[in-house]
Design a protein around this nucleic acid. Structure first.
Length: 393
RNA sequence: GUGGCUGUAGCUCAAUGGCAGAGCACUUGAUUGUGGAUCAAGGGGUUGUGGGUUCGAGCCCCAUCAGCCACC
């Protein structure tokens, strides 16, 4: 069996857990942060830099690779692992998100989606079956079902219709994958949708876990611009419904506080463009918040981005030098900042995992948030209630 | 030396004699299944200098300084 997920330790005080996910290209300790390499590259980072960061798995994207260089080409080149020369696990997103977020000109029908390329306007069509074929050609260890990610805000009726279609597509993805694909070499994850409506989320979980059987699941449709409290609330009532013996992946998250919140709710896997995107604009994540490398105050700052950080950038370069690189638009700056941010999140997951083993994750989270100068959302909620109660008196 | 043109924000330039502006740069934020993109907010001026005309001058007049061009 190429795929196996084992929970090694459960927290007594929350749903947090540490596990290990086995794939054909190696083991993934969880919780894990997966850097995003949309176009078969984690922007600006070489494979050696990713090894130095010790990224266990990276993402790529079906929509983008389908358009360029094309999935047949990648298959001819021996698959995505060989093409990139990345020997570790890979995950490909289905492209559902891109079809719905990048293409204003698209037509959805029961069968699939017709959309226009954001590159040249050419017309293309994705169906659950065609996406499974593309993902098979790419050859990632974990592949995602073709879903529809409803934007925020969306009406109940629209969200429900999109959800039902996503469910029918999920069944078709699973059928195509199990019948014609390589289920022993690629694990297909189902995607829970339902927007921010509790009954729709519950229905989605019920359908995907009871009517169908995926080796892993993800929560989709989160972090699409909704207020943070709504995001947390949705995750909090959805995650506990998921099967405990399978890996749970929240797509598109995120920030350090969101990662810790996810872990608290039993989430095992995360991916996000945040660390690499903000790095390219000179913003670095540090234990007490943010450092903006463009800030004038850093002109003569000899310290690393973050004291005590083990990343290559912090081991070798000063804030003053990095600020200079960003102001002069030197490409090395993008790379050094990306190294730091990805390292920070990967390392945060390492520390969280260790804290779970040490039975102190909840304390670890509170301590991290205090340093990070973020008030835990449960405290904020309590304060809000207290204020409201006061007001009523 | 003579004639002409030009002097407005750090830069490039707008502004009928009627509230001195834009782009870039600068400062500070934002960025969540990736466009190195983008967005938001902010600071900045004795309009070269000194006089004059006018209710009112960046604009008209005089002088002066500086830069550029042409000609002795």
């Amino acid at each position: 069996m190429s795929f196996k997920f084992d929970v090694l330790k459960n927290s007594d005080k929350s749903a947090a857990r540490a596990g290990i996910l086995q794939t054909p290209h190696g083991e993934i300790p969880t919780p894990v942060f997966m850097p995003v390499g949309t176009q078969a590259t984690v922007k600006t980072l070489s494979r050696d830099e990713l090894f130095a960061i010790d990224a266990k798995i990276i993402l790529s994207n079906t929509y983008h690779l389908y358009l360029r260089p094309g999935h047949e080409l990648i298959a001819e080149m021996g698959g995505l692992h060989r093409f990139i020369n990345w020997p570790r696990p890979l995950l490909t997103d289905s492209g559902g998100f891109q079809v719905f977020s990048l293409g204003p000109l698209r037509k959805i029908d029961e069968e699939g989606v017709t959309f226009k390329s954001h590159l040249d306007g050419s017309s293309h069509r994705f169906t659950p079956e065609s996406v499974m074929k593309v993902e098979e050609n790419l050859g990632a260890d974990i592949i995602m079902a073709f879903d529809e990610c409803a934007p925020y805000p969306s009406e109940y009726e629209y969200t429900q219709a999109a959800l039902n279609r996503t469910h029918r597509w999920a069944a078709r993805c699973l059928e195509a994958h199990n019948r014609y694909g390589k289920p022993d070499q690629q694990a297909l994850f189902g995607i829970v949708q339902g927007g921010f409506f509790q009954d729709l989320r519950e229905e989605s979980v019920r359908f995907l876990t009871q009517e169908l059987d995926f080796p892993g699941y993800s929560l989709g449709g989160l972090s699409v611009g909704e207020p943070k409290d709504i995001f947390y609330e949705t995750m909090a009532y959805t995650a506990p419904l998921m099967p405990k013996e399978k890996p749970l992946y929240v797509m598109g998250v995120g920030s350090p506080e969101d990662l810790l919140e996810g872990i608290l709710n039993g989430v095992d896997m995360f991916d996000c463009v945040l660390p690499t995107r903000i790095a390219r604009n000179g913003a670095c994540i540090v234990k007490d918040g943010r450092v903006n490398l463009r800030n004038a105050t850093l002109a003569r700052d000899e310290r690393p981005i973050m004291e005590g950080c083990g990343c290559y950038t912090c081991q070798n370069h000063s804030r003053a030098y990095l600020r200079h690189l960003f102001r002069t638009e030197e490409i090395l700056g993008l790379r050094l900042a990306s190294i730091h941010n990805v390292y920070f999140l990967v390392d945060l997951m390492r520390q969280a995992r260790q804290a779970i083993f040490d039975a102190c994750f909840e304390e670890f989270r509170l301590e991290f948030l205090a340093n990070f100068r973020i008030i835990p959302h449960e405290i904020r909620a309590k304060n809000r209630e207290a204020r409201a109660a006061n007001h009523r008196k």
